[in-house]
Design a protein around this nucleic acid. Structure first.
Lengths: 188, 188
DNA sequence: GTATTCGTTCAATCCGAACTGAACGTTCCG
DNA sequence: CGGAACGTTCAGTTCGGATTGAACGAATAC
């Protein structure tokens, strides 16, 4: 096997790293279905601007009949344990997955929240909703900034009225979105 | 000024490129309000996984009392004309901005769609809706793949039933989302 | 005709987020 | 006590998408 000696620049310690595409010995090969869902979930995840790993981990767990450990996740997805750790913690924060403990085993076992509605709810409540309320504050701030701009003489009256009108429109839509989304969620 | 000679690797032609941070001579400095909205729109854009430039261009145009040309957009946002071009074309595809032509001027003038609801509608219809229907197809395909997995003996009956159940749940939620979103849009 | 002035396209570069290996803190076991 | 087995953290690297300069085609101007 082709190997490369690497020196950790921080500590000076050495390690060997394989240059070949290592084929991790998978405990039990994943079915085609699971592999495809993992890929699809990964794409979906990065479609909405999240790291691909997050989606992959959830996809893996969602089709997993039993809870998996961090090491199993890392092995099955062929990612580092570090990635698996950060990914699972993010998913835990979103309430998309849960930790379960098995008696007599120190490992954390992870399983997907089975109710997809809850997952969506978590993503909305903990990810989108905060951004929405922040946006509201920012628009209000912009209206003040605009008044400042006029007083400072940076803009003329026509531009002032124009911008004010548009900012108010933004504020209006923002308010409606904030009202409609929770209602829509009820109908899922 | 610090200059660097660069040779285009494709054609062998040479050019000088400034290494200093060039401070473009802005035709008319933007007001603080517009600058802040541009920044916020840029962040919002990359929050949902789109390039920052897209949001910035829309933000600029939305608070612009008059339509702007490609060159003005590039100059005001301090981005290349190439970026401005690709960005505006994406926004045009989403119906978020429009082209207007002024008699006796060869340039394209660009202005934001004033009705934000229309912008949202465009983003949904032309960006999200296609992904949603594709997802439906993909879930159906996964159900077939799952049958294949069982026949191939890759999975046992228990795993088959488990995965089938979860895939059906996905299908169910997907259907509901596809129904609810257009209705929610009506209420904006 | 040739020379500009547009917008677009494309290979190459750049940049930042995602990922990684190694170190670390903790807990459990002998 | 070690030391092994965990999960987490962090500096450093990788990598893919955003961005760019240059080339290009089309339309106009001279």
């Amino acid at each position: 096997m082709l190997l490369e000696e690497r020196v950790c620049e921080l500590t000076g310690t050495k390690c060997l790293r394989s240059l070949e595409k290592v084929h991790h010995p998978v405990s039990k090969p994943l079915s085609k279905t699971r592999l495809e869902l993992i890929e699809a979930a990964g794409r979906l995840s990065q479609l909405v601007g999240r790291p691909r790993t997050i989606g992959q981990i959830f996809g893996l767990l969602y089709l997993s009949p039993r809870a998996l450990t961090l090491d199993e996740i890392a092995e099955l997805l062929e990612i580092s344990k570090a990635s698996a750790s950060t990914g699972t913690r993010q998913l835990l924060a979103l309430h998309a997955i849960r930790q379960v403990w098995k008696p007599g085993d120190r490992k954390d076992f992870l399983e997907a929240e089975p109710e997809l509605r809850e997952v969506l709810r978590g993503v909305y409540q903990l990810f989108f909703a905060p951004k929405l309320t922040k946006t509201r504050g920012r628009i209000d701030l912009l209206l003040e900034t605009l008044d400042g701009d006029r007083k400072a003489g940076t803009i003329d009256d026509e531009e002032y009225r124009f911008c004010r009108d548009r900012l108010l429109q933004m504020s209006h839509l923002q308010g409606k979105v904030e009202k409609v989304l929770p209602i829509a969620e009820k109908f899922l």
